[in-house]
Design a protein around this nucleic acid. Sequence first.
DNA 1: GTTATATTTAACCATAAGGTTTAATATCCG
DNA 2: CGGATATTAAACCTTATGGTTAAATATAAC
Lengths: 112, 112
Amino acid sequence: MVKYNATNLDNLFHALADPTRRSMLQALALQNLSIGELAEPFEMSLTAASKHIRVLEQAGLINRQVQGRNHICELNAAPMHGGLEWIQHYQRFWNLQLDTLEQLLQKPDSDS
Amino acid sequence: MVKYNATNLDNLFHALADPTRRSMLQALALQNLSIGELAEPFEMSLTAASKHIRVLEQAGLINRQVQGRNHICELNAAPMHGGLEWIQHYQRFWNLQLDTLEQLLQKPDSDS
DNA sequence: GTTATATTTAACCATAAGGTTTAATATCCG
DNA sequence: CGGATATTAAACCTTATGGTTAAATATAAC
């Protein structure tokens, strides 16, 4: 049973807060990739990319399968579920605000 | 027109990656609060809380309304929309995995 | 067995983050 | 005006983050 406690959300959102890491997840949404393949598109050292991958791994967003000298990374989106749910609690607020905006647009002179 | 570019997502997810800040947003979901009121529940200095509030503000999640010496903070959930959409692109992956799990549970001996 | 490939570890650096305390600023109130 | 209240700014500290290069480890391949 996976719990979505504060630490999980900390790790999840921290992992998602970096564009390199988000980009890596997008690549893994298409296919599994080795460390080297995952790192290749980025203009940074393999070591730096490897650290990003570890952050994703620690957030549970990547599973690693060692095949000889290759480490194959697989996307595990499950931890995002907690993040999605957390954000969804606020959805009514931006819907509300959009509603208010609509109202204003429908009677643009009511306040002037 | 608000764009959900990398920087916005960086700021959003970074803002959400801290439990104090998430807790502040939850408080603001109930009512608008001054800096002091927002800071009160946390065991840290006002200055520290004030810095967290600024991070939320820079992510666009809080609007500040200065009323005399009080600064009233209001939740602005709109920037979460981009984050929600980003995560939702991955929803099919954890749904897929749950489906796979269900299949495994339905025929638990098929692989042994 | 030696060499090439894939990845990690170690050591290091600069900057960001999260916290503190003390001082400054702005506003309200008597 | 002078004192209390609300908030920020400045200076500082410690640890985390994101990056580097060079060395170590493990496996593959000749």
